[in-house]
Design a protein around this nucleic acid. Structure first.
Lengths: 206, 206, 206, 206
DNA sequence: GATGAATGAGGCTTCATTCAT
DNA sequence: TATGAATGAAGCCTCATTCAT
């Protein structure tokens, strides 16, 4: 039966679709609750599959979490990439990136929590995380390059290493979430973005 | 029989000591793993008491977590208070505070995680958290006052609200932990502190 | 693929069977010991399932108890219904019903205990019990009707309300169990049934 | 020191008083909740003693329960004794006794529950109960005697054994509590007492 | 491949009882 | 004798994972 290949292609497509559906559900649930508080059946329900099915696509809870994390963080990074590669004044691009980070953390507390532990030295098996770490690293390069170029142009001060700037930007944006503590009104993104960019911009200007 | 009062005092002291031991154990465990991943028996073991004993001092897991969180965060705040109230150049004090925050987050991931959710709008019972929120707020005031004074002195620019600066400082310091992702060498605090302060200082200088 | 329906039917049947097995085990254990003294694992063991399985069928201990209670009491009521609807002298039917009640209480102390508290005013959530209360009420109606008819026929005295007679009959039968206290020989049902009916019959005769 | 004896007398009195206080508290709590749902500390609190103290007076929970049960049931029996020994028409005395039983059960569900199990054949150690059983038996004798006398007088029919009448009376009164199920208004004692006595009286009249 | 019922380890919590003070 | 802190067994329940269908 030479229909094998087409059939398996159709199958593969279906399989891939289901996989996506599962990851999407996992993104939703893990993002909102974090690994520990999310349950596999909850994800299965949302993905509209049986609980057992999850294990046909992922080896366990952790693996599924990793996949969901990778997906979400990639999505974020793709958006920031677009801005870094665009033209226009650096300050404006900074603002966009800050905005993206801020809103990411808002709806992805579960992943942000994990982000904090990714590089933690007392992880039992740091090896497992390396793909995720690389993923996160990769995004930084682009940012770093943008800062380097701006320093070369004389657009900003070159007193601080571009790599540091890149990391600091991300940290500042992500970190502002703790702000929720004092404000309890995380809704108005803009009232945070602008001063943040202003501060950062002053910090790096000549 | 005037031994009554001393007796009860001795007992109270013992009781208080045990309470402290329990909270200390809880700080350790919750700080390292977060609420969800920590188990009560683990804490009991570390505190060297039976599992049931925990419930003589705290009504449940949540209450114990709150106590541990409050203790740790208070300790941090007391240190930062000391620096804010000291004399000396603002920039140096900034450096100290950043250092403190940085090292706090390093060993208290579990609490930092919680800090992020403290003001989260979809908490079922935000009322329960108010004491903790107030605790966190209180520390900010002191910082805010310091910034306000520096602006009045003309020491720093007054373009950004002192309250915002206060929050941003904390966020920046806390947020830099995500840096762990890329570096995996969180040990060398100093290599982070200095550029961070430099950046922030530039950002707020005239 | 018309196998769908049969398949799900088979599954449903199996599920239903297991549910029945669980309820049966619960009837046994709760009936003998009452809610408080029975343990879920005991029931699980008797039903030959894992402890966790119980929670796939019932939301918790209370729900399982209710189901078991409803089952047992329904069984009792179905038997009494049969007698009330049959023809034959009222006195004989009375005897049968008394016999049934008596033997019910003997092996269902746990449920009888609960029966006593069903209408208790200081139940926290009386609402939850209403289905059970209705169940118990429903049986009374039939009895009441039988007494009313007998009064209309002039078969018995009409000095007491038929509804009261209905309740008194049940109470007398159920209550005779306390007799166990003095006799320790609950085995000989008959030696209780006959005088009881005689007494009641005299009480209601013209 | 020849003060020994008076001192120990005073001590004994004090000890006795405390014992009474404990039993009183136990009556309250066990009566309301039954053995299983009552807790020792609850009783200790109510008696205003430390938890450990209970064990200086009673060997354990069960022993305390027995003491409380014996106390309450004795109190009930003393009241009924008074009525049986009084003069006056039998019917009136019946009414009083019914009233007493009814109101006993109302506030002593916990003990009534136990009453039902007292003679249960599958009690592990029936021997332990014999004092309680005797206690309950003793009350019956008086009632039985009263019925026997009434039969001798020709006041009531002698078709049923006086002992049976005695037991039936108690059962009927106790059993009417299940009535709560259908009525949910156990408050109006009188609306139950009168028809009950009427029914019973008819049942035993000539 | 998909299902979802079943499992059972493990977590939180309560409470009768003991024992050092 | 009285205390009440401490214990730890036992109970209820959840949920990641497996496996027969």
């Amino acid at each position: 039966m030479n229909t094998d290949s087409p059939i398996s292609t159709r199958r593969d497509r279906k399989r891939e679709e289901k996989r996506q559906a599962i990851v999407a559900a996992a993104e939703e649930v893990f993002g909102a609750k974090g690994v520990a508080d999310a349950s596999m059946s909850e994800i299965a329900d949302l993905a509209d599959v049986a609980a057992g099915t999850l294990y046909l696509y992922f080896s366990g809870k952790e693996a599924l979490f990793f996949a969901a994390f990778a997906k979400r963080i990639s999505t974020l990074f793709e958006s920031t990439h677009a801005h870094w590669e665009a033209n226009g004044p650096l300050r404006d691009r900074l603002a966009e990136v800050v905005r993206l980070h801020l809103s990411f953390v808002r709806t992805n507390r579960g992943f942000y929590e994990f982000l904090m532990t990714l590089g933690h030295p007392d992880h039992t098996s740091p090896g497992e995380f390396s793909p995720l770490i690389e993923l996160c690293d990769s995004q930084l390069s682009l940012q770093t390059a943008a800062f380097a170029k701006a320093q070369a142009n004389g657009e900003i001060s070159d007193k601080l290493a571009p790599e540091f700037l890149s990391r600091a930007l991300r940290s500042l944006a992500f970190g502002m979430v703790t702000d929720a503590v004092n404000r309890r009104k995380t809704e108005d993104l803009e009232s945070v973005v602008e001063p943040l960019v202003e501060l950062f911009w002053n910090g790096i200007s000549k």
